[in-house]
């Protein structure tokens, strides 16, 4: 077992990828001399050189597209978009090229591209720097979307993503980078897809991912002494969704709460809720509940931001209401 931070885990995964395959290169804003805005590529410029650690201009759309083109040309690019907020400038290349090229060309090409970006709020960065838009990405067929929530996934998901022949988007919640945990090098990594049960329980299923996993585990811990056993599911992959794991859990607990930092309307939580309804309706003892971000641009002031984002207290009260009204 090795103790490391999420940041160190991401860095170790990147380093391993660069060491393993000469076709792999990293490209993005400040990945080189600065060492990465979250320090995930610190020291890489010296170790791997400027050909493979490429600082880019602030041109998200064109270096996303350049990643797609380089993938078509036989390279194995890793594109780092500093945060999901800036990725909006690159959405054309994501949706119209990365996701569409294979199908639109009749299966002639694959786009083996990996894109990493930080996501999420919680650091008082206000409306333009606190987005959780991974649900938008998960809407698009042709790409895969994953959200490592644990140290082990932060360490191994990049390597797994590089085995995929199609574009994979990795969303790293910015609040997770300083978190510490254990990584067992001897345990083989789980697959890129497939949800994981992070805490077993019999009374209610909490479905979550990324930065909200810790909040769900905290809520479960709070409720445990009251005799409520929460089963916490970490989706890990947002596209494709592992609904089988979710439905098996709901069949056991008969209740589901979905915790998603995206805004409620049109959210991933809405999609999961619909699928539970479609496939698990008769297993439910209560309506599916959702804990999402309040529908406001995320505000700066700490008390307002805290109130806008999902918090363990809100998860706890949602579960309690669910149990009280449909006991």
């Amino acid at each position: 077992m090795t103790k490391m931070t999420y940041r160190e885990a991401v860095r170790a995964g990147l380093r391993e990828a660069l060491q393993n395959d000469p076709q792999v290169f990293l490209m993005g804003e400040d990945v080189g001399r600065y060492g990465g805005s979250y320090a995930c590529s610190k020291g890489f410029l010296d170790e791997f050189g400027p050909e493979r650690i490429r600082d880019t201009p602030l041109s998200e759309n064109s270096f996303m597209g350049a990643g797609i083109g380089a993938a078509l040309g036989g390279m194995r690019p890793i594109v780092e978009i500093m945060t999901v907020n800036f990725s909006l400038l690159a959405l054309d290349q994501v949706v119209n090229n990365a996701a569409a090229l294979r199908h639109m060309s009749g299966g002639q090409v694959s786009v083996p591209l990996v894109v990493r970006m930080a996501t999420g709020g919680g650091r008082q960065l206000a409306a333009q720097h606190s987005h959780s838009l991974e649900g938008w990405y998960a809407h698009v067929p042709g790409i895969k979307v994953v959200a490592p929530a644990t140290i082990a996934d932060a360490r191994t998901m990049l390597g797994l993503a590089l085995r995929e022949p199609d574009p994979v988007f990795i969303f790293e919640h910015a609040m997770l980078y300083p978190q510490e945990g254990e990584f067992d090098e001897t345990t083989p990594p789980s697959g890129l897809e497939g949800a994981a049960i992070r805490r077993p329980g019999r009374d209610v299923t909490l479905v979550t991912y990324g930065g909200s996993l810790g909040k769900c585990l905290a809520a479960a811990e709070t409720l445990a002494p009251t005799g409520v056993a929460c089963e916490v599911i970490d989706l890990r992959s947002l596209r494709p969704l592992d609904m089988d794991t979710v439905l098996q859990s709901v069949a056991k607990t008969h209740r589901a709460v979905i915790v998603d930092e995206g805004w409620r309307t049109g959210s991933l939580a809405g999609e999961i809720s619909a699928q539970i309804m479609e496939r698990g309706f008769y297993d439910l003892d209560a309506p599916v509940a959702r804990v999402c971000s309040v529908e406001v641009p995320i505000p700066y002031a700490k008390h307002l931001e805290d109130a806008a984002l999902p918090q363990p207290e809100r998860i706890v009260s949602t579960i309690q209401e669910l149990l009280a009204s449909h006991d």
């Binding site: 759309n61 064109s62 350049a66 990643g67 797609i68 083109g69 380089a70 993938a71 040309g73 390279m75």
Partner: peptide, 16 residues
């Protein structure tokens, strides 16, 4: 939309 992709194809050629 094609311009960034062309830059990437050329980058792949240069790197290889």
């Amino acid at each position: 939309g094609g311009l960034p992709m062309a830059v990437g194809l050329a980058l792949a050629d240069k790197l290889q």
